[in-house]
Design a protein around this nucleic acid. Structure first.
Lengths: 191, 191
DNA sequence: GTCTATATTCTGATAGAC
DNA sequence: GTCTATCAGAATATAGAC
């Protein structure tokens, strides 16, 4: 059980990176198979439903990565305000120099496909929900009422996604850092 | 001076609508000329630099429209918190039923093109800056310190753009309404 | 099962008729 | 100046060799 679907993994990894960076429509299947080094036949063998299926799997792949990262910050930093701020600062750091930008989670792909593909829309919605739940659970664990925690999760997720978009457009980490500064305002002490 | 560049205006109007709704890469020039009823020759006559120039003009066109709308809310509602909340609620209303969705300002196009077209990136950045300035000026007029007002403008703009994205993906106005509820937290009384 | 070569459609762009 | 017909290339997808 050592060398199983290594080719599938490579395609998925390359696709995830390119979809995040360029979006759905700007990323061609030819580019994916070229950069991953795999032939096009493998792509349709592993993802019989073509681009849409590949993109859906890529979103799940990216989502799990981000989930793990958020979870890690929440577990390691006791104060939820500081934990969220540290996560945002880490996300901001990549916008320092344009050539270091690695990806724009799934906001871009979600916007592109929400009106044209139900399967893709649903995996994006699920990704957002998972992230928001991790944040909300951290807040609940720290004394927040459930309803307030869930709403705060949505607000913080919006701020981060919007902030990533502004940082990308401005080629500057400044917008995301400003967002980070405002987190204490959203999470005023409750309990 | 009655029937001047009526054809140009029609192309621009159709292009603006489609770019907002579908994004840059998903919107073909053929679709624009088909829906606007104009021939392709006219498009390249009025926009010699092709798709990129047309998209840049479309962003400016959309930006002016949104500017006027924000300005209108800021002038008619005295309290800045209520004014911003009313603007967000109006933006949210279109996500009630999917078929009524008119557009996603410029966030989608900005994300798609930030890394591949400097001219497009710059017009998007300018649009964001204009909107943020209108909000910041309203806050300054109501006793906010300039530095705080500018930062609040960025935060609110991020929340709105992120909220639009979430509402689009969820096909629900709920995320934007939650954003609206959280505006008082950002704009706690200062002066 | 893995991969290559090809089919079909559509893209942005242009040349040139009127 | 206004528009039509067409270009070369890229898109997704498939057929079929091995």
């Amino acid at each position: 059980m050592a060398n199983k679907p290594d080719s599938r993994e490579k395609i998925l990894q390359t696709a995830s990176r390119l979809f995040q960076l360029q979006g759905y429509h700007a990323t061609g299947l030819n580019q994916i198979i070229k950069e991953s080094g795999s032939p096009k036949g493998s792509l349709y063998y592993y993802f019989p439903n073509g681009k849409e299926e590949l993109a859906a799997e890529a979103v799940k792949y990216t989502s799990r990565y981000i989930e793990a990262k958020i979870q890690s910050f929440m577990e390691q930093v006791p104060d939820p305000v500081v934990a969220i701020q540290e996560f945002i600062k880490e996300a901001a750091s990549q916008f320092d120099q344009p050539e270091t930008i690695k990806g724009i989670p799934v906001g871009l792909l979600a916007s592109e496909t929400a009106l044209i593909s139900e399967p893709l829309r649903k995996v994006c919605v699920q990704a957002f929900k998972n992230w928001e739940t991790i944040i909300a659970n951290k807040l609940i664990k720290n004394g927040y009422e459930e309803d307030e925690a869930v709403k705060a999760g949505t607000v913080i997720n919006s701020m981060i996604e919007g902030g990533i978009m502004l940082s990308l457009a401005n080629k500057s980490k400044a917008p995301l850092l400003t967002i980070s500064e405002s987190i204490p305002l959203i999470l005023h002490r409750k309990g």
